[in-house]
Simulated scan of single mutants.
Amino acid sequence: MFLGRFIWGEEPGLPLLQIEGELGSAVIALQGAHLLSFIPKAKGGRELLWRSPKAVFAQGKAIRGGVPLCMPWFGAHPSGLPSHGFARVSNWDVLEVEILSDGAIKIALELADSAATRALWPHACLFRLEVIVGRTLSLQLSVENRSDTAALFSQAFHSYLAVPDVQDVVISGLGLCTYVDTLLDGRPRLLQEGDLSVQALTDRVYLDVPAEQVIKHSAGQIKIVSDTHSAIVWNPWEGAAKMADVGAEHYHGFVCVERGDVLDNAVSIAAGGVYRASMTLSE
Rank of each mutant, 00 (worst) to 15 (best):
S90I: 13
L141W: 14
V169I: 06
L120S: 04
A124R: 15
R128P: 02
A62L: 04
A150H: 06
S114C: 12
L176S: 13
A124S: 03
F86V: 14
M71H: 00
L183I: 04
V67A: 04
G186Y: 13
I171C: 10
K106C: 02
G66V: 10
L137E: 05
A150K: 01
V170I: 11
D102W: 13
E110I: 15
H84P: 03
T117M: 09
P72W: 06
V143N: 07
W92M: 05
S142V: 07
L161H: 11
D168W: 07
E144G: 02
S114A: 02
V166I: 13
S147E: 10
E130S: 12
G60W: 04
Q192V: 04
G66E: 01
P78S: 13
S83L: 06
L137H: 05
V169A: 10
A156P: 01
Q155I: 02
D93R: 12
G85K: 07
A87S: 01
L183F: 12
S101F: 07
L111G: 00
E144Q: 07
L100Y: 12
V131T: 14
S101K: 09
G60P: 08
F153A: 01
G186W: 09
V97H: 00
Q140C: 05
G85R: 05
R187W: 08
H123A: 01
D102T: 10
L191W: 15
N145P: 02
D195G: 00
W73L: 00
L141F: 13
S172E: 15
S83K: 15
S142I: 08
G60R: 05
V131R: 12
L126F: 08
L190A: 07
F57W: 11
K61Y: 10
H77K: 04
E110C: 09
G175T: 04
L81A: 07
D165W: 13
D102K: 14
S83F: 03
P68G: 06
F57Y: 13
D113P: 14
P78F: 07
R135E: 15
P188K: 01
F127I: 08
V89M: 06
S138E: 08
S101L: 07
A116R: 14
R51F: 00
G134H: 11
N145R: 09
G80V: 01
L191K: 10
D93I: 15
Y160R: 01
A104Q: 14
S142N: 03
